[in-house]
Design a protein around this nucleic acid. Structure first.
Lengths: 153, 153
DNA sequence: CAACAATACTCGTTGTAACGAATATTGTCA
DNA sequence: TGACAATATTCGTTACAACGAGTATTGTTG
């Protein structure tokens, strides 16, 4: 996920505005991601693993693997292996659904909740430290623009 | 003024605006990156390799490996191997500097220029297709906000 | 029931990122 | 000159992403 983009040369005339905007986006995301990455690495979590945990925390009833795959845009064999690692560390649990026994529901486990809870504060502080200087107004403006950017892709 | 007291349940983490903005940023960058990723994969280029080629195109006199590493925020040994792969495909050339013989200058090769040239149009079209609906005004606003976001991290 | 679709999984593969440790060469400076 | 710094490299390691092919189980439908 980490995508690095060169930030050196001045924009050539031929480069279109959309491309420049994309580069800005990459640079910014990359910069902001580094701190978070450091926090996660200290807990031996990959960004994807962290995302899964947060998704599952938001769905206390659990989610089928396929649904996780849809949200992450990741193929199901890869989701399976991601969940394998998380399950081995007892951060999540899996159990087969009784209704539709084709599905396996993944739920966050106490260990996963605890780990997330420990990360919440530093993560929030990291983001605040990096973005608070924008202020509420510009943050809202930024979020709105980003949503609009995705709204018609 | 009366103070509100939490009853029993754990105080919900205040979803801070900065964190939300970061998530929006990630979602947007991720979405936009996928098309580019497809174009690059068709040419067997990783995002990092593509970035290096673009950096080098912007520096016709070549760059020392260390400078590339600085721009990409990537460690020396990894840059070396990235350049190895690019050199093997004759997309770049390397030669030792005569002045300071510790340095090795990497330059883009004709093959690299050609490959980039072939990618320029589809890449630009992809980005335009994804972002043009914002219009110039909002694109500028977005870019400005992103620059400000990085200006104090 | 048979055929098919959906779900998750197993297995294998390749390339890469990221990191640590060590080395050779060269330049700089006290 | 000798000690040190800078540059790039080699080597080894681990984990992960991404992809393809195939399998087992279960549900659905004609």
């Amino acid at each position: 996920m980490k995508q690095k983009v060169h930030s050196g040369s001045k924009p050539k005339l031929k480069e279109c505005l959309e491309e420049e905007a994309y580069l800005e986006l990459c640079r910014t995301t990359d910069l902001l991601s580094r701190r978070l990455g450091g926090l996660l690495k200290a807990e031996d979590l990959s960004a994807n693993q962290y995302n899964i945990l947060r998704i599952l925390r938001g769905s206390p009833d659990g989610l089928p693997c396929g649904e996780i795959g849809n949200r992450m845009i990741t193929r199901d064999p890869d989701i399976t292996r991601l969940l394998d690692r998380l399950e081995k560390r007892e951060l999540i649990t899996r159990c087969r659904e009784t209704k539709d026994r084709r599905m396996v529901m993944a739920r966050i486990a106490p260990g996963g909740l605890k780990l997330l809870a420990e990360l919440d504060e530093p993560v929030r502080e990291a983001h605040a430290g990096q973005l608070a200087h924008l202020g509420r107004k510009r943050l809202w403006a930024l979020m709105e623009l980003l949503q609009e950017a995705r709204s018609e892709g």
